[in-house]
Design a protein around this nucleic acid. Structure first.
Length: 257
DNA sequence: ATGGCATAATCCTTATGA
Protein backbone atom coordinates (compact mmCIF):
# COMPACT_ATOMS: atom_id res chain seq x y z
CA UNK A 1 0.00 0.00 0.00
CA UNK A 2 1.33 3.42 -0.96
CA UNK A 3 0.43 6.45 1.14
CA UNK A 4 1.68 9.90 0.15
CA UNK A 5 1.42 13.53 1.14
CA UNK A 6 1.79 16.68 -0.93
CA UNK A 7 1.27 20.35 -0.22
CA UNK A 8 0.13 21.47 -3.68
CA UNK A 9 -0.09 25.22 -2.93
CA UNK A 10 -3.37 25.75 -4.82
CA UNK A 11 -5.18 22.72 -6.16
CA UNK A 12 -6.61 24.84 -8.98
CA UNK A 13 -3.17 25.78 -10.29
CA UNK A 14 -1.60 22.37 -9.62
CA UNK A 15 -4.39 20.05 -10.81
CA UNK A 16 -2.52 18.95 -13.91
CA UNK A 17 0.67 18.23 -11.98
CA UNK A 18 -1.44 16.25 -9.51
CA UNK A 19 -3.21 14.21 -12.18
CA UNK A 20 0.12 13.43 -13.87
CA UNK A 21 1.65 12.44 -10.55
CA UNK A 22 -1.28 10.17 -9.63
CA UNK A 23 -1.05 8.54 -13.03
CA UNK A 24 2.67 7.87 -12.61
CA UNK A 25 2.74 6.71 -8.98
CA UNK A 26 -0.77 5.36 -8.36
CA UNK A 27 -0.77 5.82 -4.55
CA UNK A 28 -3.59 4.12 -2.65
CA UNK A 29 -4.02 7.27 -0.60
CA UNK A 30 -2.73 10.82 -0.99
CA UNK A 31 -3.01 13.60 1.58
CA UNK A 32 -3.21 17.09 0.09
CA UNK A 33 -2.68 20.45 1.77
CA UNK A 34 -3.17 24.09 0.80
CA UNK A 35 -6.03 23.47 -1.58
CA UNK A 36 -6.87 27.19 -1.43
CA UNK A 37 -10.35 26.63 -2.78
CA UNK A 38 -13.88 26.17 -1.50
CA UNK A 39 -15.56 22.77 -1.47
CA UNK A 40 -17.85 23.73 -4.34
CA UNK A 41 -14.75 24.26 -6.51
CA UNK A 42 -13.12 20.94 -5.57
CA UNK A 43 -12.27 19.05 -8.80
CA UNK A 44 -14.15 15.92 -7.84
CA UNK A 45 -15.04 14.91 -11.39
CA UNK A 46 -11.50 15.17 -12.74
CA UNK A 47 -10.19 13.07 -9.85
CA UNK A 48 -12.95 10.47 -10.24
CA UNK A 49 -12.02 10.20 -13.90
CA UNK A 50 -8.46 9.51 -12.74
CA UNK A 51 -9.71 6.73 -10.47
CA UNK A 52 -9.73 8.57 -7.13
CA UNK A 53 -12.34 9.22 -4.47
CA UNK A 54 -11.88 12.25 -2.25
CA UNK A 55 -12.73 13.52 1.20
CA UNK A 56 -12.05 17.23 1.48
CA UNK A 57 -12.36 20.26 3.70
CA UNK A 58 -11.65 23.46 1.82
CA UNK A 59 -11.93 27.20 2.20
CA UNK A 60 -11.31 30.29 0.16
CA UNK A 61 -7.76 31.64 -0.30
CA UNK A 62 -5.93 29.74 2.44
CA UNK A 63 -5.58 26.27 3.94
CA UNK A 64 -7.77 23.39 2.81
CA UNK A 65 -6.98 19.67 3.09
CA UNK A 66 -8.07 16.49 1.33
CA UNK A 67 -7.53 12.76 1.31
CA UNK A 68 -7.62 11.09 -2.09
CA UNK A 69 -7.97 7.33 -2.23
CA UNK A 70 -8.45 4.58 -4.76
CA UNK A 71 -11.31 3.24 -2.60
CA UNK A 72 -13.93 5.42 -0.90
CA UNK A 73 -12.56 6.97 2.33
CA UNK A 74 -14.65 5.93 5.33
CA UNK A 75 -15.59 7.65 8.61
CA UNK A 76 -14.47 11.08 7.46
CA UNK A 77 -13.75 13.56 10.21
CA UNK A 78 -12.98 17.25 9.74
CA UNK A 79 -11.04 19.35 12.22
CA UNK A 80 -9.63 18.42 15.61
CA UNK A 81 -12.51 17.41 17.90
CA UNK A 82 -12.92 19.85 20.77
CA UNK A 83 -10.69 22.45 19.13
CA UNK A 84 -12.70 25.29 17.63
CA UNK A 85 -10.90 26.44 14.47
CA UNK A 86 -12.06 28.49 11.50
CA UNK A 87 -9.08 27.28 9.48
CA UNK A 88 -9.50 24.05 7.54
CA UNK A 89 -6.31 22.22 8.47
CA UNK A 90 -7.21 18.68 9.39
CA UNK A 91 -9.12 15.80 7.86
CA UNK A 92 -9.11 12.13 8.82
CA UNK A 93 -10.52 9.06 7.12
CA UNK A 94 -10.07 5.32 6.97
CA UNK A 95 -8.65 3.86 3.77
CA UNK A 96 -8.12 0.10 3.43
CA UNK A 97 -8.20 -0.33 7.19
CA UNK A 98 -5.60 2.38 7.87
CA UNK A 99 -6.70 5.50 9.71
CA UNK A 100 -5.19 8.40 7.79
CA UNK A 101 -4.90 11.81 9.42
CA UNK A 102 -3.98 14.60 7.03
CA UNK A 103 -2.81 17.89 8.52
CA UNK A 104 -1.73 21.30 7.35
CA UNK A 105 0.00 22.54 10.47
CA UNK A 106 0.06 26.29 11.11
CA UNK A 107 3.16 28.12 9.92
CA UNK A 108 3.53 30.37 12.94
CA UNK A 109 5.13 33.23 11.01
CA UNK A 110 7.45 34.43 13.81
CA UNK A 111 8.19 33.48 17.38
CA UNK A 112 6.64 36.67 18.75
CA UNK A 113 3.52 36.43 16.59
CA UNK A 114 0.03 35.51 17.78
CA UNK A 115 0.15 33.03 14.90
CA UNK A 116 2.93 31.26 16.79
CA UNK A 117 0.69 30.95 19.85
CA UNK A 118 -1.98 29.49 17.58
CA UNK A 119 0.55 27.04 16.11
CA UNK A 120 1.56 25.68 19.51
CA UNK A 121 -2.08 25.49 20.63
CA UNK A 122 -3.02 23.62 17.47
CA UNK A 123 -0.16 21.15 18.00
CA UNK A 124 -1.16 20.64 21.61
CA UNK A 125 -4.79 19.96 20.67
CA UNK A 126 -3.70 17.53 17.95
CA UNK A 127 -1.37 15.67 20.33
CA UNK A 128 -4.04 15.35 23.02
CA UNK A 129 -6.66 14.15 20.58
CA UNK A 130 -4.30 11.55 19.06
CA UNK A 131 -3.28 10.24 22.47
CA UNK A 132 -6.70 10.20 24.08
CA UNK A 133 -8.98 9.31 21.19
CA UNK A 134 -7.59 8.67 17.75
CA UNK A 135 -4.79 6.20 18.52
CA UNK A 136 -6.77 4.13 21.04
CA UNK A 137 -9.64 3.89 18.55
CA UNK A 138 -7.42 3.34 15.50
CA UNK A 139 -4.15 1.53 16.32
CA UNK A 140 -3.21 1.42 12.63
CA UNK A 141 -2.77 5.13 12.07
CA UNK A 142 -0.77 7.35 9.74
CA UNK A 143 -0.33 11.07 10.37
CA UNK A 144 0.82 12.80 7.21
CA UNK A 145 1.04 16.33 5.96
CA UNK A 146 2.84 19.63 6.02
CA UNK A 147 3.99 19.92 9.63
CA UNK A 148 5.79 23.24 9.16
CA UNK A 149 8.49 21.92 11.49
CA UNK A 150 11.97 20.69 10.58
CA UNK A 151 12.45 18.25 13.46
CA UNK A 152 16.24 18.04 13.46
CA UNK A 153 19.37 19.87 12.32
CA UNK A 154 19.69 17.34 9.49
CA UNK A 155 16.33 18.54 8.18
CA UNK A 156 17.37 22.07 7.39
CA UNK A 157 20.04 23.66 5.22
CA UNK A 158 22.94 24.67 7.47
CA UNK A 159 22.77 28.31 6.34
CA UNK A 160 19.12 28.73 7.30
CA UNK A 161 19.10 31.91 9.34
CA UNK A 162 15.58 32.09 10.71
CA UNK A 163 14.02 30.66 13.84
CA UNK A 164 10.55 29.82 12.62
CA UNK A 165 10.06 26.13 11.70
CA UNK A 166 13.20 25.14 13.66
CA UNK A 167 12.75 26.75 17.08
CA UNK A 168 13.05 24.75 20.31
CA UNK A 169 9.34 25.06 21.23
CA UNK A 170 8.28 23.80 17.79
CA UNK A 171 10.71 20.90 17.93
CA UNK A 172 9.54 20.09 21.46
CA UNK A 173 5.96 20.01 20.19
CA UNK A 174 7.04 17.67 17.41
CA UNK A 175 8.69 15.34 19.93
CA UNK A 176 5.56 15.41 22.11
CA UNK A 177 3.59 14.34 19.06
CA UNK A 178 6.00 11.43 18.48
CA UNK A 179 5.71 10.42 22.12
CA UNK A 180 2.07 9.52 21.59
CA UNK A 181 3.50 6.49 19.77
CA UNK A 182 4.39 7.70 16.30
CA UNK A 183 7.53 7.17 14.23
CA UNK A 184 8.95 9.31 11.43
CA UNK A 185 8.78 6.79 8.58
CA UNK A 186 11.35 8.72 6.54
CA UNK A 187 14.06 8.08 9.13
CA UNK A 188 13.41 4.34 9.23
CA UNK A 189 15.39 4.15 6.00
CA UNK A 190 18.73 5.30 4.71
CA UNK A 191 18.26 8.60 2.90
CA UNK A 192 20.32 10.90 0.71
CA UNK A 193 22.07 13.64 2.68
CA UNK A 194 20.29 16.98 2.72
CA UNK A 195 16.88 15.53 1.94
CA UNK A 196 14.30 18.30 1.92
CA UNK A 197 10.64 18.65 0.96
CA UNK A 198 10.28 22.41 0.61
CA UNK A 199 12.32 25.05 -1.19
CA UNK A 200 11.54 28.77 -1.33
CA UNK A 201 10.47 30.07 -4.73
CA UNK A 202 13.01 32.86 -4.40
CA UNK A 203 16.75 33.02 -4.88
CA UNK A 204 17.00 29.80 -6.86
CA UNK A 205 16.55 27.88 -3.63
CA UNK A 206 15.67 24.60 -5.31
CA UNK A 207 18.66 24.73 -7.67
CA UNK A 208 20.95 25.22 -4.66
CA UNK A 209 19.00 22.71 -2.56
CA UNK A 210 18.45 25.43 0.00
CA UNK A 211 15.48 23.76 1.64
CA UNK A 212 13.92 22.11 4.65
CA UNK A 213 12.23 18.82 5.44
CA UNK A 214 8.89 19.90 6.85
CA UNK A 215 6.50 17.43 5.20
CA UNK A 216 6.30 14.17 7.09
CA UNK A 217 4.64 10.79 7.31
CA UNK A 218 4.39 9.42 10.85
CA UNK A 219 3.22 5.89 11.53
CA UNK A 220 1.81 4.27 14.67
CA UNK A 221 3.69 1.43 16.34
CA UNK A 222 1.63 -1.41 14.84
CA UNK A 223 2.46 -0.10 11.34
CA UNK A 224 6.14 0.44 11.98
CA UNK A 225 7.25 -3.02 10.97
CA UNK A 226 5.12 -2.85 7.84
CA UNK A 227 7.10 0.09 6.42
CA UNK A 228 9.08 -0.92 3.33
CA UNK A 229 10.26 2.41 1.89
CA UNK A 230 9.82 6.14 2.28
CA UNK A 231 11.13 8.81 -0.06
CA UNK A 232 10.81 12.37 -1.30
CA UNK A 233 9.95 12.77 -4.97
CA UNK A 234 11.76 15.91 -6.06
CA UNK A 235 10.70 15.59 -9.70
CA UNK A 236 7.53 17.73 -9.56
CA UNK A 237 9.50 20.62 -8.04
CA UNK A 238 11.28 21.02 -11.40
CA UNK A 239 8.11 21.36 -13.45
CA UNK A 240 6.85 24.64 -14.80
CA UNK A 241 4.91 26.59 -12.12
CA UNK A 242 5.61 23.99 -9.44
CA UNK A 243 4.36 23.74 -5.90
CA UNK A 244 7.11 24.84 -3.53
CA UNK A 245 6.70 21.46 -1.77
CA UNK A 246 7.61 17.99 -3.04
CA UNK A 247 5.52 14.87 -2.38
CA UNK A 248 6.63 12.30 0.19
CA UNK A 249 5.65 8.69 -0.32
CA UNK A 250 5.49 5.71 2.03
CA UNK A 251 5.27 2.09 0.99
CA UNK A 252 3.62 -0.23 3.48
CA UNK A 253 3.50 -3.98 3.38
CA UNK A 254 -0.19 -3.92 4.06
CA UNK A 255 -2.87 -6.06 2.54
CA UNK A 256 -5.97 -4.11 1.74
CA UNK A 257 -8.50 -4.60 4.50
C1' DA B 1 20.69 34.90 1.80
C1' DT B 2 14.19 35.86 3.94
C1' DG B 3 14.12 38.94 -0.49
C1' DG B 4 14.44 40.02 -5.62
C1' DC B 5 8.58 34.50 -5.67
C1' DA B 6 3.85 32.61 -5.85
C1' DT B 7 -1.08 32.64 -4.90
C1' DA B 8 -5.59 34.66 -4.11
C1' DA B 9 -8.72 38.39 -3.55
C1' DT B 10 -8.94 42.52 -4.97
C1' DC B 11 -7.13 46.48 -6.57
C1' DC B 12 -3.39 47.50 -9.35
C1' DT B 13 -1.89 46.52 -3.79
C1' DT B 14 -2.05 43.62 0.26
C1' DA B 15 -1.86 39.36 3.19
C1' DT B 16 0.38 35.25 3.71
C1' DG B 17 3.39 31.74 3.14
C1' DA B 18 7.98 28.94 5.01
Amino acid sequence: MKIATWNVNSLRVRLHHLLDWLDTHRPDALCLQELKLEDKAFPEDELRAAGYYAAFSGQKTYNGVAILASSPPKDVQRGIPGFADEQKRLIAATVSGVRIVCGYFPNGQALDSDKFVYKLGWLDALTRWLKQEALPAHPNLVLAGDFNIAPDAADVHPNWGGEILVSPPERAAFRALMETGLTDAFRLFEQPESSYTWWDYRMGAFRRNFGMRIDHILVSNPLRNACRACSVDKAPRSLERPSDHAPVMLELDWHTQ
